[in-house]
Amino acid sequence: WIARINAAVRAYGLNYSTFINGLKKAGIELDRKILADMAVRDPQAFEQVVNKVKEALQV
């Protein structure tokens, strides 16, 4: 799951650890299995999560 998430978030200019930190700051409580599945099956929803994380990180 970690490898999938890392590959997906790198397309948005983040790395895995920064993304996970941003999830916590944004108050998003999705587990890694769901995030990895979302990255593959629903990229639009995953992009929305990434955008919320970037807002929380102020990137």
Rank of each mutant, 00 (worst) to 15 (best):
residue 35 L to Y: 05
residue 24 K to Y: 14
residue 51 N to L: 13
residue 17 S to F: 14
residue 46 F to C: 02
residue 15 N to E: 05
residue 23 L to P: 00
residue 25 K to V: 10
residue 2 I to Q: 04
residue 37 D to C: 08
residue 27 G to R: 09
residue 11 A to S: 07
residue 10 R to F: 10
residue 20 I to M: 15
residue 37 D to E: 11
residue 45 A to W: 12
residue 53 V to H: 00
residue 48 Q to G: 10
residue 22 G to Y: 03
residue 46 F to I: 02
residue 57 L to G: 05
residue 29 E to D: 13
residue 27 G to C: 05
residue 49 V to D: 00
residue 25 K to N: 07
residue 19 F to M: 03
residue 58 Q to P: 10
residue 39 A to S: 11
residue 36 A to R: 03
residue 21 N to D: 06
residue 56 A to M: 07
residue 16 Y to H: 03
residue 50 V to C: 06
residue 30 L to H: 05
residue 44 Q to W: 15
residue 39 A to K: 02
residue 11 A to E: 07
residue 33 K to P: 11
residue 35 L to M: 06
residue 39 A to I: 13
residue 44 Q to E: 08
residue 1 W to Y: 15
residue 14 L to R: 00
residue 32 R to F: 14
residue 39 A to L: 07
residue 57 L to V: 08
residue 16 Y to P: 03
residue 5 I to Q: 00
residue 48 Q to M: 07
residue 43 P to V: 07
residue 56 A to C: 06
residue 12 Y to D: 01
residue 40 V to N: 09
residue 32 R to I: 15
residue 3 A to H: 05
residue 59 V to D: 12
residue 26 A to V: 09
residue 53 V to Y: 01
residue 32 R to W: 12
residue 15 N to I: 10
residue 17 S to Y: 15
residue 40 V to C: 15
residue 11 A to M: 13
residue 24 K to E: 07
residue 2 I to T: 01
residue 14 L to S: 01
residue 7 A to H: 10
residue 27 G to P: 02
residue 4 R to M: 15
residue 40 V to E: 15
residue 47 E to L: 12
residue 42 D to V: 06
residue 25 K to D: 06
residue 16 Y to R: 01
residue 11 A to W: 04
residue 49 V to R: 02
residue 45 A to Y: 10
residue 37 D to Q: 10
residue 25 K to E: 07
residue 37 D to S: 06
residue 40 V to R: 07
residue 12 Y to V: 03
residue 1 W to A: 15
residue 26 A to W: 03
residue 56 A to G: 07
residue 49 V to C: 06
residue 40 V to A: 13
residue 11 A to F: 06
residue 47 E to R: 11
residue 38 M to L: 12
residue 20 I to T: 09
residue 51 N to A: 09
residue 37 D to M: 11
residue 3 A to C: 15
residue 58 Q to D: 11
residue 1 W to E: 15
residue 38 M to P: 01
residue 3 A to T: 05
residue 15 N to G: 06
residue 59 V to G: 09
residue 15 N to D: 06
residue 44 Q to Y: 09
residue 7 A to W: 06
residue 59 V to T: 13
residue 30 L to K: 07
residue 13 G to D: 06
residue 41 R to Y: 14
residue 49 V to A: 04
residue 4 R to L: 15
residue 28 I to M: 10
residue 37 D to A: 05
residue 52 K to M: 11
residue 5 I to W: 01
residue 42 D to W: 09
residue 29 E to P: 14
residue 27 G to K: 12
residue 39 A to D: 04
residue 8 A to H: 04
residue 40 V to K: 12
residue 39 A to R: 02
residue 1 W to D: 15
residue 48 Q to R: 13
residue 58 Q to C: 08
residue 48 Q to E: 08
residue 53 V to S: 08
residue 7 A to R: 14
residue 31 D to L: 07
residue 12 Y to E: 02
residue 49 V to N: 03
residue 16 Y to I: 03
residue 23 L to M: 12
residue 15 N to L: 05
residue 27 G to D: 07
residue 8 A to M: 04
residue 12 Y to R: 04
residue 55 E to P: 02
residue 23 L to C: 05
residue 6 N to A: 12
residue 31 D to R: 14
residue 3 A to Q: 13
residue 33 K to L: 07
residue 38 M to A: 03
residue 34 I to Y: 15
residue 25 K to I: 11
residue 25 K to H: 11
residue 9 V to R: 00
residue 27 G to F: 08
residue 19 F to H: 00
residue 24 K to R: 08
residue 12 Y to A: 03
residue 51 N to M: 13
residue 13 G to W: 02
residue 5 I to S: 00
residue 28 I to P: 02
residue 56 A to P: 02
residue 26 A to Q: 07
residue 12 Y to W: 06
residue 36 A to N: 02
residue 18 T to Q: 11
residue 21 N to Y: 12
residue 38 M to N: 02
residue 1 W to L: 15
residue 58 Q to H: 07
residue 21 N to P: 04
residue 41 R to P: 02
residue 18 T to A: 09
residue 1 W to M: 15
residue 3 A to S: 09
residue 29 E to Q: 09
residue 54 K to I: 12
residue 50 V to G: 01
residue 29 E to G: 13
residue 35 L to R: 01
residue 5 I to T: 01
residue 25 K to M: 10
residue 17 S to G: 05
residue 53 V to K: 00
residue 55 E to G: 10
residue 39 A to Q: 02
residue 24 K to H: 09
residue 23 L to V: 07
residue 14 L to D: 00
residue 18 T to S: 11
residue 19 F to K: 00
residue 42 D to M: 10
residue 59 V to I: 09
residue 53 V to N: 00
residue 29 E to F: 15
residue 45 A to P: 02
residue 19 F to P: 00
residue 43 P to F: 06
residue 15 N to K: 08
residue 28 I to T: 03
residue 18 T to N: 08
residue 32 R to M: 15
residue 31 D to A: 13
residue 4 R to E: 15
residue 25 K to C: 05
residue 2 I to R: 14
residue 49 V to S: 01
residue 36 A to F: 13
residue 8 A to L: 05
residue 53 V to G: 01
residue 30 L to I: 14
residue 27 G to I: 04
residue 12 Y to T: 02
residue 15 N to P: 04
residue 33 K to D: 06
residue 50 V to M: 04
residue 29 E to R: 14
residue 26 A to G: 07
residue 25 K to R: 11
residue 27 G to W: 05
residue 29 E to V: 14
residue 22 G to T: 04
residue 39 A to E: 02
residue 46 F to E: 00
residue 1 W to V: 15
residue 7 A to F: 06
residue 11 A to C: 05
residue 57 L to T: 08
residue 20 I to P: 00
residue 6 N to H: 03
residue 12 Y to L: 05
